[in-house]
């Protein structure tokens, strides 16, 4: 390990290109690497973090036209109980007008319920639009105040610097009024 690959102070050349020396340096490198990897890996999510990766959301109290925010993996998840009008608007958009074309039907499991990760795809701020009083942007969905991205009633990016639509997390309906995210 102490060996120095680019030393040139060897006058006698005894160990230069010596098989033993190369083996030793190689094993030293493997040894140091195997010590460093656990340190790096310890910074990855631990077992308890991974185990908490799913959250159940009760929908029974969310009236039509309302939204709730729930924490999942430390991030906000938006659940919107969409009105018939909002659904109609979302479904009627011409995909050619979208920066990130995606049909509304592929973004929902049940058209009434829109489930999104509430993180702007630009630089990670939480868009506003969950409360009635919030500005909802030009497309009546969400608006990110950090850098001005506008999302529509399907959570798709319509204008502003964000490159992609708001992410749809993996979720499933456990019953009509209960979904499990993660």
């Amino acid at each position: 390990m102490d060996d120095n690959a680019n030393h040139d102070g060897n006058d006698d050349g005894v160990i230069r290109r010596d098989f033993l020396a190369y083996t030793a340096v190689g094993m030293g490198a493997i040894g140091v690497g195997s010590f460093l990897w656990p340190m790096v890996d310890s910074m990855n999510p631990a077992r308890d973090v991974l185990a908490l990766a799913s959250t159940e959301i009760d929908l029974s109290a969310v009236a039509e036209g309302q939204s709730i925010t729930v924490k999942w993996r430390g991030k906000p998840v938006f659940v919107r109980h969409r009105t018939a009008e909002e659904i109609a608007v979302a479904e009627s958009v011409d995909l050619g007008d979208l920066p990130d074309p995606e049909a509304d039907s592929t973004r929902v499991q049940n058209a009434q319920w829109l489930v999104l990760v509430g993180i702007c795809t630009h630089l990670g701020c939480v868009p506003i639009g969950q409360k009635d009083a919030d500005a909802k942007g030009d497309y009546d969905g969400w608006f990110c105040p950090c850098h001005g991205s506008h999302y529509d009633t399907s959570g798709r990016i319509r204008r502003g610097p964000a490159p992609r639509n708001l992410e749809v997390p993996p979720y499933q309906f456990v019953s009509d009024t209960l979904i499990k995210v993660g």
Binding site: I15, L20, G31
Partner: peptide
Amino acid sequence: KVLLFIALFIIVLYMLKRRVWRD
């Protein structure tokens, strides 16, 4: 695994040391 690896490494380093110190 670690103890086995170090044991092998010890042998290699011992041979290397003998060789370097020969003269």
